[in-house]
């Protein structure tokens, strides 16, 4: 392990230990933060609870649907925009300021339109995640070296072959970072929506535990969600690394 990596691990372990000590000695009240060991116990308890798995499943399903739509749709739209420059010129100022709009402000409207089910959540998460994917796709396709495109032409590849064998792999690193963002944004959309107004899902469970002063459960649920997202991001990151290494970068 590198020195920086070692120090980082030391820092994180130290922070968790300090938190544990502060909580055990009563310097931090359990009404604010519960001790890390209590969080771990809460995680084990939650994982044994069938009710937790139901809410968890509902949320993950919504995130997965939103993510699939956002990633495929975003990719197709991004691809199309690179092919039609006038359209891209027209749309790009809006794409550039898209993430400055607090989408969550439209959630109330979506509830009015779609009703209080899973649809407004999935819609919100999809809208939130898709533009990250569009931007990443365009950034990736823009940076495909001209020499690769020329090589494809030399080999007389058809359009489909050129896209699948040359352009996509060359643009993959950017597209993967779009994928990571899309996951985070889908989670934000779904969980924020569930916090505000929902009858089921992991966000609702967290808000419910908060309302009932059940801090141990609340922290446990938060920890589970964050661990899930982080491990997903890390596996995408590892995949990215492997791909770059294969290209000698």
């Amino acid at each position: 392990m590198s020195l920086a990596g070692f120090l980082r691990t030391l820092l994180i372990v130290g922070a968790v230990a300090a938190l544990e000590i502060a909580c055990r000695t009563g310097a931090i009240k359990p009404t604010m933060v519960v001790a890390p060991s209590a969080m771990a116990l809460g995680v084990v308890e939650a994982l044994r609870d069938p009710e937790f798995w139901r809410h968890f499943g509902v949320s993950v399903q919504a995130v997965a649907i939103a993510m699939v739509i956002a990633v495929t749709g975003g990719f197709c739209i991004g691809f199309m925009l690179t092919r039609v420059p006038p359209l891209r010129r027209a749309v790009s100022p809006f794409l550039a300021s898209y993430y400055s709009i607090p989408h969550i402000a439209f959630y109330p409207l979506l509830i009015v339109i779609f009703g209080l089910g899973r649809t407004p959540l999935i819609f919100l998460a999809t809208m939130f995640a898709m533009v990250a994917m569009i931007l990443a796709t365009m950034a990736g396709l823009d940076r495909v070296p001209a020499v690769l495109a020329k090589t494809a032409r030399v080999h007389r590849l058809g359009l489909v072959d050129e896209i699948l064998r040359v352009r996509l792999p060359a643009a993959a690193p950017h597209i993967l970072s779009g994928l990571k963002l899309a996951v985070a944004y889908s989670f934000i959309g779904v969980i924020a929506g569930e916090f505000i107004m929902s009858t089921e899902g992991i966000g609702h469970e967290i808000a419910y535990a908060y309302d009932n002063f059940n801090n141990q459960r609340m922290y446990a649920l938060i920890l589970i969600v964050l661990t899930l997202v982080t491990s997903f991001n890390m596996s995408v990151f590892a995949w990215e690394r492997r791909m770059l290494k294969r290209r000698g970068l």
Binding site: V33, A184, F195, I206, V225, L226
Partner: peptide, 17 residues
Amino acid sequence: TLYSLPKVTLYPVILLL
């Protein structure tokens, strides 16, 4: 890592603090 976390999840913690 902090940047790519869905930070909404942590809002109840902020409220407690």
